[in-house]
Amino acid sequence: MTTSKHQPPLANRGVVILEKEPEEVQNPLTAMVDYLRVSFKTHDVDFILEQIVHLKKAYMQEKESGFYGYIGTYQLDHIKVFYSKEGDNRGVLVEMSGQGCRQFESFLDARKKTWFDFFKDCINHGGKFSRFDLAIDDRETYFEIPMLLEKVKKGEAISRFRKSDFNGSLDIADGSNGGTTLYFGSKKSEAYLCFYEKNHEQADKYNIPLEDLGEWNRYELRLKNDRAQGAVQSLIQSQDLLNIAMQIINNYIRFVDADEDASREKWKTSGFWKVFIGDVGKLSLFMQPEDEFYEKSRRWLQNSCAPTMKMVLEADQVLGRQDLSDMVVNAELSDKQEKMLDVLLASPRDMVC
């Protein structure tokens, strides 16, 4: 039987299960870092990996290609570190998608650190945030997104944004709402808000009955350049979301009740909005560490390969052969797959430095 070309560095084959605290599960409003891009005017990618991201290079795949004009990438699933050539002022860029942020939280947790520690490291070493997103999950649903859309249509939304956009779907069988998304601002602007029905989105994506997901809205706050940098600096100073939530949401959009006896600017804030904004201002930054890596590859294996593998297995059982096991034993792993195996067999504590 063949073996892996090398053993995972300090691998731990145990499974780490991180349990949520009861109060975190019950909190109807939670806010999470949902996306970030931060660049550094240096070509010392090893320093960024070791002192900012705190991930061991041994667990990261290196690609001789990158995005945004960068020439190479160090990647651990959804966590990416791009580097540029000498003389290119792009330097090094760290990018994490929403899933990458959840995965990075498992490494923060292993080091007993928080997002605030990461933000401080970035700012202290000259990091410039060109993108920073926060997502607020609302499990109580203080309001319905279609209702907000109707208030916008009636002019009962006062905003610093000039434009709003929306999309949605309907069930042809009964005309019921299939999910509504409401946008405020322009995707090209430095501040952009997106409110949508997360339960509908997840039900469609994973083919889950809507009633199994319960009530669930998501409010995404997407910031770029100066707004992103300012938000991170405010978070470092306040250690909570009060400045961010109030400035980004309440400062940009307010829902009101029409009053024929008053000018529009004097219309009173809707009661549901007062309650929501009051509770948003009490939010703390929530972490949901995710130590599952390369789920996309596993889903591809399950959906695309598993039926064929089952067919060969059943044929083996009837014909008294072992074709499937021979195929697996004799397969050669690529360098990329070796790295993925290292990560899958390790714990987050093994991978941090």
Rank of each mutant, 00 (worst) to 15 (best):
L10M: 10
R13M: 09
G14H: 11
V15D: 07
L18Y: 01
P22Y: 01
E23C: 05
V25F: 04
V25N: 00
P28W: 06
L36Q: 06
V45D: 13
L49Q: 14
E50T: 09
I52S: 11
I52M: 11
H54G: 03
L55S: 07
L55R: 10
K56M: 03
K63V: 09
E64T: 14
Y68K: 14
G69M: 00
G72W: 04
Y74P: 03
D77W: 01
V81K: 00
M96N: 03
R102K: 09
Q103M: 08
D109M: 06
T114P: 02
W115H: 09
C122L: 07
N124T: 10
L134A: 13
D137F: 02
E140W: 03
M147H: 08
V152P: 01
I158D: 08
I158K: 13
S159W: 02
R160E: 10
F166L: 04
N167K: 12
S169V: 03
L170R: 10
L170M: 02
D171N: 13
G175L: 13
S176P: 02
G179C: 03
T180R: 00
E190A: 04
A191F: 04
A203L: 08
D204V: 05
I208E: 03
L213R: 12
R218A: 00
L221F: 06
Q233N: 10
L241V: 04
M246Y: 04
Q247L: 07
I248H: 04
Y252Q: 14
Y252K: 13
F255Y: 06
V256I: 11
D259F: 10
K266A: 14
S270V: 02
G271W: 04
W273V: 02
I277F: 02
G281Y: 02
E290S: 14
E292D: 06
Y294R: 00
E295Y: 06
R298D: 09
W300N: 15
Q302L: 13
C305W: 03
T308G: 12
E314A: 11
R321A: 08
D323M: 11
L324D: 10
V329D: 06
A331M: 13
S334M: 11
K339I: 15
L345N: 07
R349A: 15
R349G: 07
V352M: 04
